[in-house]
């Protein structure tokens, strides 16, 4: 392969692999927020997912079981947030942050005995016909393809199916949906659960695929970035994917160009790029009235508007 080809395939490969957890948790947060529930506990859910995936795989030797458990555990944990914010109608910011703390705490305390342990089996390399032949796509586990495919599917579902309309309407005007016979509570619970599952899976990817091991803090703030990327993406899975990959490529470059550019500046770039990108498109979006779901963060109560 030519030098340029080698270089490109390296960049693409690292971007794809690094961006998976960011992409998955962003997609999940987009769905939760589209239904009107702000979930600030993503980081804690990821940590729970990473820990439970590792622990289950450690004991069972089956990474697929670990993946499944990571999604289920984080999904169930996120129901705590759903219960508080949908049923009890509490402040979503606080209950999300509380959930995040609980997630970090529980995974940290229970995970003590698993730090520094080695997994016998991890996620294998997964090859798809055609796609895996592209430069940079050669050696990845299944998460890379699933997250990419999910971004497209979730975009389609949200904007081109009845389910998508229901979710978006619940986030915009729950009273009207309620009047039309939509079960607002159910939709919101489902979306929060789904967001939790994706956050958990992204944690599972970290502890089983990206770097097969468990240690506290390995989520490294990705959950917070997901919340920022959700806004960056204008609550659109497609732009969420673009944002996640852009972040990934800049993160990779921050090590690639260290010989040429000062490391501090490079470390800042991934965080500055969303602002720079938004400075070009935000006014346009505002003119087109693309903004946050109108009822984001507002508890719905029948009869009060």
């Amino acid at each position: 392969m030519s030098t340029i080809g080698f270089w490109i395939s390296g960049v693409v490969g690292r971007t794809l692999a690094y961006s998976v957890p960011l992409l998955l948790s962003t997609l999940g947060e987009i769905y939760a927020e589209r239904s009107g529930i702000l979930n600030l506990g993503v980081e804690g859910l990821m940590s729970l997912g990473a820990f439970s995936a590792f622990a289950v795989t450690f004991f069972s030797g089956n990474p697929w079981l670990g993946v499944a458990v990571s999604g289920v555990v984080a999904g169930c944990a996120s129901l705590v947030h759903a219960f508080f914010s949908v049923t009890l109608r509490t402040n979503q910011v606080v209950s999300g942050l509380a959930l995040g703390m609980l997630g970090m705490g529980v995974s940290g305390v229970l995970g003590r005995d698993f730090e520094g342990k080695v997994l016998a089996t991890t996620l294998p390399v997964f090859r798809l016909p055609f796609l895996s032949a592209l430069p940079g796509f050669e050696k990845h586990n299944v998460f890379v393809y699933v997250s990419l495919g999910l971004a497209v599917i979730l975009w389609f579902v949200l904007f081109h199916t009845r389910w998508g309309i229901v979710i978006r309407s619940v986030g915009e005007n729950p009273a009207a949906c309620d009047a039309m016979g939509v079960n607002v509570t159910l939709v919101r619970y489902a979306c929060v659960f789904f967001g939790g599952v994706l956050a958990g899976l992204s944690g599972g990817y970290l502890s089983l695929g990206y770097r097969p091991s468990w240690s506290y803090g390995m989520t490294a703030g990705v959950g917070w970035l997901a919340i920022a990327l959700t806004i960056f993406a204008f609550w659109n899975p497609f732009w969420g994917m673009v944002g996640a990959y852009l972040f990934g490529i800049l993160y990779h470059f921050s090590f690639r160009f260290q010989a040429q550019v000062s490391p501090e500046l490079l470390n800042t770039l991934p965080y500055l790029f969303p602002l720079v990108a938004l400075s070009f498109v935000s006014r346009l979006a505002a003119r087109r009235k693309v903004g946050p779901p109108a009822s984001l963060g507002v508890p719905y109560q029948r009869g009060s508007s």
Binding site: W7, Y251, F255, Q258, P263
Partner: peptide, 23 residues
């Protein structure tokens, strides 16, 4: 040499730094 300049514990940074060195 690649520097992390974030924290003494930064697995994601260490991974990408190592990958870029290998590249």
């Amino acid at each position: 040499v690649r520097w992390l300049q974030t924290s003494w514990y930064d697995p994601a940074g260490a991974k990408e730094a190592a990958e870029s060195l290998i590249a």
